[in-house]
Design a protein around this nucleic acid. Structure first.
Lengths: 224, 224
DNA sequence: ACTCAAACTGACCGATCGGTCAACAACAAT
DNA sequence: ATTGTTGTTGACCGATCGGTCAGTTTGAGT
């Protein structure tokens, strides 16, 4: 393999890997780790089963790779937040960013949910380590906000769980939401409507006055 | 089989059926329909595999039976609610009842969640029928409350989804909650703390003044 | 034209899947 | 004691599971 030939070769390789990852993410999201067969993934990707195992070390390695990819997508959420930040802006941003991420990566979100339902066998360390620190850090800042009188003195961990659960619901439970609303798809308008609702209830419920303007966020939300 | 012998016989039969249902509920909740084998259920129940299929028609029949059992448990929620009811009492009751049900039947709740994640193949009719009517009925009453000025004019369907998702979270995502809180179990105190938090935020967020007294509800919540 | 490594895949492995069945055990009614 | 029903289960069925491997195809470098 020379420097010249590297590009088209690895492009092809990358294209195939991507199609495998996409197919696997859909399959694992629907039926979980144990409930998904390599044959099912291969069929979705339009490849022979043996080809899957040529590109991926094993079923487990493929699964873990997908989990890690989804975890990293959440890293951008609530990245820079300090005690001096405006709670209204930060929480509003949290809600809308999380909502957009759920819409952009619905299969990844479901994959994570299935892993948690199974008892998080591959994520125990992440939950008790990275994510726990993440929550503890944000919780400390929220507590400071409450101490400064910027908002009600609610338990920050429950608040984070609330926003997390509410936003996850619309992607993970899309089948339930669609069934109840009587629609085949949940539209962008629904997404905006739900975001506005959550912003209203959660901010007001925490005794926070809403931000005057979030046009920039609304714009960013039109999924790219 | 005579009338006399019926009692001890069917008692034994019932005991075995119960142990099968319990074992199956745990297994299906963790790994979904496809991810669960009859052998795994049999091992949990301490029975030979063939015995499972003596008591249950098939894997699918067993699964559907568990789903229906869980659906019926939710029937008592928000049963009698009218436009004249006090939104504060009704929503508070909704939150706490749902929270208690999740704690009483954690495996059933997870089973339902896994079924929804899989695309609700066995629940499409229920979602688009019974549950949809249930939501529409409650939504109409909540709209009347808003029209009467008893609360903010929020979309009632989003409100129902919010309460549903928030309460489900603590049972379905118990692995995540435990990991982040750094505990092996979620205690009754945590449950009460979360319930109070949700009541505070959601009611206040909807512009509802909280009920003066809910001692009876608090009492009923000490799991029976 | 030839070489050789990378890409690809049909065939196969032992294990396990959901489900069937025949043989056997337990026991009440006669 | 004999009968008949119900309960029980090891053994087995074809299909599929995750994974291996040998053999073939492909295509860039010489």
């Amino acid at each position: 393999m020379t420097a010249v030939s590297t590009t088209p070769e690895s492009q092809s390789r990358e294209r195939i890997e991507t199609s495998i990852l996409t197919a696997a993410e859909e399959a694992f999201a629907q039926h979980g780790y144990r409930g998904t067969s390599l044959q099912a993934i291969a069929d979705r990707a339009g490849l022979p089963k043996a080809n899957i195992l040529y590109y991926m070390e094993s079923k487990q390695a493929l699964y873990v790779r997908l989990l890690n990819r989804m975890m990293s997508r959440w890293n951008e959420v609530l990245e820079d937040i300090t005690a001096e930040s405006d709670p209204a802006l930060v929480l509003s941003d949290f809600i809308r960013t999380k909502m957009v991420l759920g819409r952009r990566y619905p299969e990844g979100s479901k994959l994570f949910a299935a892993e948690i339902l199974a008892g998080a066998p591959f994520l125990t360390d992440y939950l008790a380590g990275e994510l726990r620190d993440w929550v503890a850090c944000r919780a400390a800042i929220i507590r400071q906000w409450a101490a400064q009188g910027k908002m009600d003195d609610v338990d920050p961990r429950w608040l984070i769980f609330l926003i997390w659960s509410a936003t996850q619901h619309y992607t993970e439970y899309s089948a339930q939401v669609r069934g109840i609303l009587g629609r085949d798809v949940v539209s962008d308008d629904d997404l905006e409507s739900v975001s506005a609702f959550l912003e209203h209830v959660i901010l007001k419920g925490c005794g926070i006055t809403r931000p005057a303007n979030n046009a920039a966020l609304n714009e960013a939300m039109k999924h790219p």
